[in-house]
């Protein structure tokens, strides 16, 4: 759980993602929907059911017809935080980093008046109800703390099954991308649902530079599958090439589709290094 001091520092920040508010309860995000805020937008004739408080009586006096005064309404935005909770995330501090990021985004979103839904990918696929208001922050924390990374991640399958409503919103996907069915379709699927997608790619330093030598048996933490390998210089080169392919591929894919992408290492201090990295790419500010 994030410290009180860090939360107070977050009070000065907000999510700067550019997703438009989509209506509903009023929030701090400017919506395309016309509402009750002070910023005037247009008039339209009254229709039964409209809020009589929005009638423009001056217009009625001049034109003898009932008009509603329309304003750009400041509405709340749906923020979906998709958290990879498969077994691979349990390795070497990745889960702690992912949990911290989810709390950070949850806090910023709830404090900004947005609605937040947390989804655990992999395992039993749990998710929270729509949370709103600062008071729900603790519910989000409890949800995150209850999750134990387990099971195998199939990112495309799991994302497509998510009950994310089609509609404008922000989706933050926190994962190590260790999914055999790739990540492209999953991200596209979110984009099709009008989500402003940001991919937070969390890896451990060991994954970046594995310390292995000689003949080893590597066991997949998710599937239990194992491989016997003779660790040679050539094999390590091939591994780094594969890793580079994954990183570059994900970054390029996101960039080409105007998605956010940021790579975070599990040994980063979330309150300093991770927050600075998030600020640098404009996710928070």
């Amino acid at each position: 759980m994030l410290s009180e001091g860090f939360l107070r520092r977050l009070d000065a920040l907000r999510l700067t993602l550019r997703a438009p508010a989509q209506g509903g309860a009023g929030g701090l995000r400017r919506s395309k929907a016309l509402g009750t805020s002070v910023e005037f937008s247009d008039f339209r004739e009254y229709a039964p059911g409209d809020d009589p408080r929005r009638l423009d009586w001056n217009a009625y006096a001049r034109f003898d017809r009932l008009f509603l005064k329309l304003f750009m309404e400041e509405q709340e935005t749906q923020v979906n935080i998709l958290l990879d909770a498969s077994t691979s995330m349990a390795e070497r501090g990745k889960w702690e980093m992912a949990q911290g990021l989810a709390q950070l985004f949850g806090y910023l979103a709830l404090r900004g008046g947005d609605r937040v839904t947390l989804y655990a990918l992999g395992g039993d696929g749990r998710y929270t109800p729509s949370l709103s208001g600062r008071a729900d922050y603790m519910r989000a924390v409890r949800f995150l703390e209850d999750i134990r990374p387990a099971g195998e991640l199939r990112l495309c399958r799991d994302v497509q099954r998510l009950p994310v409503k089609a509609g404008r919103g922000i989706t933050l996907l926190i994962t190590d991308l260790m999914s055999p069915d790739g990540h492209e379709k999953a991200l596209q699927s979110l984009q099709y649902r009008k989500q402003e997608v940001t991919l937070l790619h969390v890896l451990s330093p060991w994954e970046m530079e594995p310390e292995l030598e000689g003949m080893v048996r590597l066991i997949d933490s998710e599937t239990g599958e194992n491989r016997e390998l003779l660790i040679s210089g050539d094999l390590m080169k091939a591994y780094h090439a594969a890793l580079e392919g994954l990183l570059k591929g994900a970054e390029t894919f996101c960039h080409d589709r105007e998605m956010g992408y940021i790579r975070l290492l599990s040994d980063m201090d979330i309150e300093v290094e991770a927050l600075r990295a998030l600020s640098r790419v404009g996710i928070v500010g």
């Binding site: 070497r92 451990s204 048996r217």
Partner: peptide, 25 residues
């Protein structure tokens, strides 16, 4: 000797790709 040197890794995904690449070469 093989039994004594086992490592659990987050995923074999990258290792499998590395092996496939190496064997192709």
């Amino acid at each position: 000797r093989r039994r004594s040197e086992s490592f659990t890794v987050p995923s074999l995904l990258l290792w499998q790709r590395a092996m496939a690449e190496q064997q192709a070469m």
